[in-house]
């Protein structure tokens, strides 16, 4: 009878057609004269024998070996009838026997990740991504920081981002190795670079936008959006490359991760209690932005003083809303007791 035997040793897989009968068994082992030669140091020279019994069933026989032969974690002893599909463990190898007409699993569908790898997995694209990220860093450092940019600052930023990207790649690579048996290191590198570059540019734009909007509310919101977006992209991309999760699960996971820092982090001002947001400090946020990013025209002192007047209106409204000073007394009430006494003394 003809069969197919597959032997998986580590990552090496061996598939061979074999023929055996009751009279003419075959032997699997390390010996070169075996019918199926397996490169497994834990296997005996002659390890397993396959034969047919009188009723035509397949018999597996252990040939008195050092490490024995197991099926479903149980030593088979001398010999045992083989049940197709079950896996035989010999040495460090897994041996499976199939009938010729056994059905094979349908072909796997090619995934986007393969297409991405074919297209962007090359060294060229890795280099391009690195350049994009570098440009993002240079741009954000040059424009956001205090007046004069210096080499030290750039070097520091590059080192910081470089180490972060490298760590992330290794981490994602390990995950990929676990779930996909492939690490896609180059792709991870490109992905993190692009995300860093894009987020640097985006946070710069958000910063400039909120600076020009001159609103602390938008400053906070845009800040969270720019960070959240970067986290979302990075997590989604990494999950796509490293795991076989479905799209909706990836979206949920990356959204959770993107929202996480906002919720758990130092606290969202909008969610905190009023008194938690109180401080005796006057934060002069964004005063260090260079005027090159100021789309508002430099103004005059008179205009500044006029702008300050608006603060008073805003604060008065805030005080009214807080309702703290709202006692049942108001100075507009007719004849408060203190004034009566004064008028009497005047007479």
């Amino acid at each position: 009878m003809n069969y197919v035997v597959t032997v998986q040793t580590g990552s090496v897989r061996q598939i061979e057609k074999v023929e055996f009968t009751a009279e003419k068994p075959i032997v699997v082992g390390r010996a070169f004269d075996s019918d199926v030669v397996v490169d497994d140091d834990y296997m005996d020279a002659r390890h397993v024998e396959f034969a047919l019994d009188d009723e035509g069933r397949v018999l597996v026989r252990d040939l008195d070996t050092q490490n024995g032969t197991l099926i479903a974690k149980k030593n088979i002893g001398e010999a045992r009838v083989y049940d197709f599909q079950s896996e035989i463990f010999s040495g460090e190898s897994t041996i499976t026997l199939h009938k010729l007409d056994a059905e094979v699993a349908p072909a796997l569908k090619r995934e986007t990740v393969h297409a991405i790898e074919r297209k962007f997995g090359s060294v060229l694209w890795t280099l391009i991504a690195t350049v994009v990220a570098s440009a993002g860093i240079v741009l954000s450092v040059t424009l956001v920081e205090f007046d004069e940019v210096n080499k030290q600052l750039l070097v520091d930023s590059f080192l910081m981002v470089g180490v972060a990207v490298l760590c992330w790649c290794l981490f994602a690579g390990v995950i990929g190795k676990l779930f996909r048996h492939k690490s896609y290191l180059k792709l991870h590198w490109s992905l993190s670079c692009v995300v860093f570059g894009v987020s640097a540019v985006f946070s710069l734009l958000a910063d400039v936008l909120s600076f020009n909007l001159d609103s602390s509310f938008w400053h906070v919101v845009l800040g969270y959006i720019s960070v959240g977006l970067a986290v979302w992209l990075l997590i989604y991309g990494t999950l796509s490359l490293s795991t076989r999760l479905r799209m909706n699960k990836k979206i949920i996971a990356s959204t959770l991760m993107a929202v996480f820092p906002a919720v758990v982090g130092s606290g969202v001002p909008m969610l905190a209690e009023d008194h938690e947001n109180w401080t005796e400090l006057a934060y002069v946020a964004r005063v260090n932005q260079p005027p090159a990013l100021l789309f508002r025209q430099p103004t005059s002192l008179v205009a500044h003083i006029e702008n300050t007047e608006a603060l008073f209106t805003q604060l008065d409204r805030e005080v009214e809303l807080s309702g703290v000073g709202d006692s049942n007394y108001s100075p507009a009430e007719p004849e408060p007791p203190s004034e009566i006494v004064v008028s009497e003394s005047d007479q």
Binding site: D214, D274, H275, N277, W278, T279, E280, L281, A282, Y283, V284, A285, R286, V287, P291, L294, R296, P298, T299, S300, L301, A303, H304, N307, T308, A310, L311, Q314, L315, E318, V319, S322, V324
Partner: peptide
């Protein structure tokens, strides 16, 4: 907190 609001700021370039 009981007595004062937070600071509100106006930044301008002159």
């Amino acid at each position: 907190y009981e007595h004062a609001t937070n600071f509100a700021c106006e930044t301008d370039f002159i």
